[in-house]
Design a protein around this nucleic acid. Structure first.
Lengths: 216, 216
DNA sequence: AGTGCTACCGACAAATCTGTCGACAGCGGG
DNA sequence: CCCGCTGTCGACAGATTTGTCGGTAGCACT
């Protein structure tokens, strides 16, 4: 409402023109933020366009249709999640407290929206396991390491057991990122990020105690 | 298209009239089915009305607005979930393999849509922990039982540890109900309900082994 | 049977969303 | 300097959805 009486005609509004790549990137950034917040079914072209600083026909120009935009943002997000997870897992190769570090890194990668995206997509029926998370590779790596540490006399741990442990960790981290704080507070652990942090460390110790059973 | 040339006017279509309670119940049933499938944000008055066999103004007549319908169906679903969980937990009071039975019952209660509802609501930002799940009571009961079984010489288990165990079980069951099969298959465990069943039994053994540590 | 209450519905209104169309405008190449 | 290419936008159309309104009709009670 700062316009004076004289402002009969709005200034022609300088138009910004980016190359297609950059424009698509900006739109995808805005779309991913909305995807985290409201899920794939709640995406609206106008919201995304406004957040990206363009008009909604521009979004359609770049992605063809709403469905095309959803496909593009989901695909990019899943690739990014996969890359982050691989990086989080492979980067923690130090021998000491390996699992602690790995869980912490994975949690950091999932927090901030990516766990929410995975759950949104799983609930909405989008295929999320196929190209997204290569759990099988993680299981193989973990199992090889586990075998190399196995005790002499004890029975060799099975790959099935390792796989189930990895699945449990994944479930706990993904779901914990969304409803962990609520559950912790509801269970009587006074809330806040400290409770979440403590829970994750406790989880790491539990899993480690299971994987690395003490020798006799 | 079986109507002959003479069928100028459709027969006045006998109108069924139920009391308000029954009608609300039928509409809520249809709405809950949609809630499981598409989440709270995806509910459409026309879909629900058609599934319930009424017209959409009838739905508005009973619930005032779309928002009123969502509130009603969410409230009813959360109460039902809570009742089912309490029943599943309190019903398994046999001493032998208590945890196995309890997890199996809880899984059955969560499967068939209720785990999906919890996750939908958590993602959509609806408060789900408040009146819904009384985790604190579960923790108290489990901890009391655990203390009564504790070994003589070993350090007493803390309530914090019991609470974290309960939270982990909840996370695994709720998330596992939605993306468990996908993850299990993705981890190399050939899929099907047998893998899910095996995972849950394994989880029960793991949790039991943690709660009931062997006496020296 | 007559009457009152209200569950129920058809039709319409307003808002919103996706998608189309023509035009404008910035940018590189002639 | 002019021109084609294309990223961008305003305006509109069609579809969908929520909500309103007046009227209809089933059920209970007298």
């Amino acid at each position: 409402m700062t316009a004076g009486v004289k402002a009969v005609k709005a200034p022609p509004k300088r138009r910004r023109r980016l190359d297609a790549e950059a424009s698509r990137g900006g739109i995808l950034d805005a779309a991913e933020a909305r995807l985290v917040a409201v899920g794939p079914g709640g995406l609206r072209l106008q919201d995304i366009a406004e957040a990206a600083g363009v008009s909604h026909p521009t979004v359609l120009h770049h992605f063809g249709s709403r469905e095309g935009l959803v496909r593009a943002v989901v695909e990019r997000a899943l690739h990014q999640i996969n890359a982050e997870l691989v990086e989080a897992i492979t980067a923690s190769r130090g021998d000491e407290e390996r699992l602690q570090v790995m869980l912490a890194r994975t949690s950091d990668a999932l927090d901030g929206g990516h766990a929410r995206i995975v759950l949104w997509l799983a609930l909405a029926g989008h295929p999320v396991g196929g190209a997204g998370t290569g759990l099988s590779g993680v299981v193989d790596a973990a199992h090889a390491l586990r075998l190399s540490r196995a005790c002499e006399g004890a029975p060799r741990p099975t790959r099935e057991d390792t796989a189930r442990t990895v699945v449990l960790a994944t479930l706990a981290l993904v779901a914990g990122s969304v409803l962990g704080p609520t559950l912790l507070e509801n269970a009587g652990l006074s809330g806040g990020p400290r409770a979440t942090q403590g829970f994750r460390r406790w989880l790491a110790r539990l899993l480690l105690g299971h994987l690395d059973a003490p020798c006799a």
